[in-house]
Design a protein around this nucleic acid. Sequence first.
DNA 1: ATCATGGTGTTATAATATAACGTTTGTTAT
DNA 2: ATAACAAACGTTATATTATAACACCATGAT
Lengths: 130, 130
Amino acid sequence: MAQAQTLSRNQQIVLDIIEKAKGPLKAYSILYNVQKKGINAPQQIYRALDKLIEMGKIHKIESKNAFVACRSSDCEISKATAFSICESCEKVDEVSDAKLSKYLSSFNHKKGMKFKRFNLEFFGLCKKCK
Amino acid sequence: MAQAQTLSRNQQIVLDIIEKAKGPLKAYSILYNVQKKGINAPQQIYRALDKLIEMGKIHKIESKNAFVACRSSDCEISKATAFSICESCEKVDEVSDAKLSKYLSSFNHKKGMKFKRFNLEFFGLCKKCK
DNA sequence: ATCATGGTGTTATAATATAACGTTTGTTAT
DNA sequence: ATAACAAACGTTATATTATAACACCATGAT
């Protein structure tokens, strides 16, 4: 099971890089950054990314095909994620708002769907870029 | 400007296919479907898709890299989109809920961002697959 | 009539992601 | 401690998604 906490070598390497980064990282940019550590193939990156996502350590920004470290405790195992994305400087922040999260988590589609997970991406201009 | 309404030949062809489809279509699957009509290259598809998105005629499902026709009038020019996605049968519906839309449209990130647009994707099991 | 704009067609290539295979490591049960 | 299993690893190859760059053509505005 996803007992979390114990990361494998590659998972730890990839997580370290993502956590140190100022913004979202692309898979191949991670790859280039870890070739010195003996990781040579995209597969190795993608496998680590998949597991880290499962564990809730990182999130994928779908609109950018990029990955960020989870800074929030609200998104229990990536079930409820929200991000703000600046269209100018590309800055991404995790939006952590209990009301929003609660509202969306309880939202049930009229057509009879029961949601297990959502991802929300807001786009605009950040404070600086305005 | 996006005076909309007058679609070019390629735009119309691509839109027709997406509108006729039961679910989201991938760019290359659209391409294979229009080769009989003389469209041969990905560029032609992606160009049409870009314009159709600008016009609000279609939306991109980011988590699936696929495109659906807009069935809603709430999402004025794609500024406010929400979808429900079945993780089993892959069925996608546009979620059209005025309250949700209003709530999210007025949501302003604490850090001083003013949003112009959002995209929300819900995942779960649809009625049938439950 | 020329020039800007937007669309087209084409070739090539970049960027993102997965398949498939065999090996190694780590855990658990006996 | 060791057999058995699961998870992670390394590697090669390939599939999928998307864009760059360039030449051409139609339209409408100055």
